[in-house]
């Protein structure tokens, strides 16, 4: 058991190391990404460029530069941005993380609840008009670009119907921390939550329905019915319980990617200063310290989420527990 945990930890560190080296090389080896030129500005004299090159240590060998960067990112945590007036990047990421977590966490609650409802109802009403309508709606959800949906949601709730009773409660765009009050926090996020959830409701609802329909042909579902259980109980305790295993593995991956910056389009459209937007800013400015910090944060999240998914696997599937 301890050996497995240690091995897992070792793998994690190795993966994080690999990603950091990769990102470092990509943004140093790509033409046009020379950080000296960026910091120095457009019409800097050769002397200034040389001074900056020395000051920031760009004239040192790459491995030393890499180690120096890692040291300032993880140990001293005073890594400063190249462009943004030398803003410290670690606190910047720490400020952005709760925004992204709030956005993705709330959306996840919505999409898991609604998609389980939709998937189960559609599977129970298999072949009916209701089933087809729900699955078609799911397909529409998958087909909508999220940034456009956000724009339209803004148009409706911020402008066209903002004065109507339905959306008069919608506050202006932006993020309010949870410490400022539950309602202030939630009301700013409800529309972004729903917008982000639409794609995943469609996706998960369809996947769950397909899984449940496949499960309903299984022998154990027939056994459960032969036991004289109610249809609902058969569906929930045998069908859904078994299908949840794939559901959870999908969820772990998606959740980690979104928390790791995958929700940037939603963040951009709704003016939320989350990690995705921060990464995007870093990329646009080729701000290597910022990119490095956000990517490492994202990688940590993906790796941690994978570990959590594995844990859930153990809880949900006894066959995995026995290493089968």
């Amino acid at each position: 058991m301890i050996g497995a945990v240690l091995r897992r930890l070792g793998q994690t560190v190795l993966v994080l190391f690999g990603i950091s080296v990769l990102v470092f090389l990509v943004f140093f080896a790509t033409p046009g990404a020379d950080p000296t030129a960026r910091i120095a500005g457009r019409n800097a004299s050769p002397e200034t460029v040389a001074a900056i090159r020395h000051q920031y240590g760009f004239d040192r060998p790459l491995p030393i530069q890499y180690l120096h960067l890692m040291d300032r990112l993880f140990i001293t945590r005073d890594l400063a941005s190249y462009v943004d007036h030398g803003e410290k990047v670690v606190p910047e990421v720490a400020r952005a993380a709760p925004v992204t977590l709030s956005l993705v966490g709330g959306a996840a609650v919505i999409w898991v609840t609604v998609s389980i409802l939709i998937g189960t109802i559609a599977a129970a009403a298999r072949g009916s008009v209701l089933d087809r309508a729900l699955m078609m709606a799911g397909l529409v959800g998958i087909s909508i670009p999220v940034f456009w949906l956000g724009e339209v949601a803004n148009l409706i709730t911020q402008s066209r119907f903002h004065t109507s009773w339905m959306f008069s409660w919608v506050p202006p765009l932006g993020y309010v921390p949870l410490q400022d009050g539950l309602w202030a926090w939630a009301s700013h996020l409800i529309i972004p939550w729903c917008t982000l959830a639409v794609l995943f409701i469609g996706l998960y609802g369809r996947v769950l329905r397909a899984d449940l329909v496949a499960a309903s042909g299984e022998d154990f579902m027939r056994t459960a019915r032969a036991k004289g259980l109610s249809e609902t109980r058969v569906m929930l305790f045998h069908g859904l319980r078994t299908s949840l295993i794939t559901f959870v593995s999908l969820f772990g991956l998606d959740f980690a990617q979104l928390v790791g910056g995958g929700a940037l389009l939603t963040e951009v459209v709704f003016g939320l200063g989350g990690v995705g937007r921060l990464t995007y800013q870093g990329l646009v400015n080729l701000d290597l310290p910022l990119i490095m910090a956000t990517v490492m944060y994202s990688a940590v999240f993906v790796v941690v989420a994978n570990a959590v998914v594995d844990l859930f696997y153990l809880l949900l599937d006894p066959r995995v527990r026995d290493g089968r």
């Binding site: 022998d219 154990f220 056994t223 032969a226 036991k227 004289g228 078994t242 949900l316 599937d317």
Partner: peptide, 20 residues
């Protein structure tokens, strides 16, 4: 079903729910 009339199936591996 299950009380007065019960049924057992061919393959006991697939006929029992694997997660319980």
């Amino acid at each position: 079903r299950g009380a007065e009339i019960a049924m057992i199936f061919q393959d006991p591996m697939t006929a029992l729910t694997p997660v319980h």
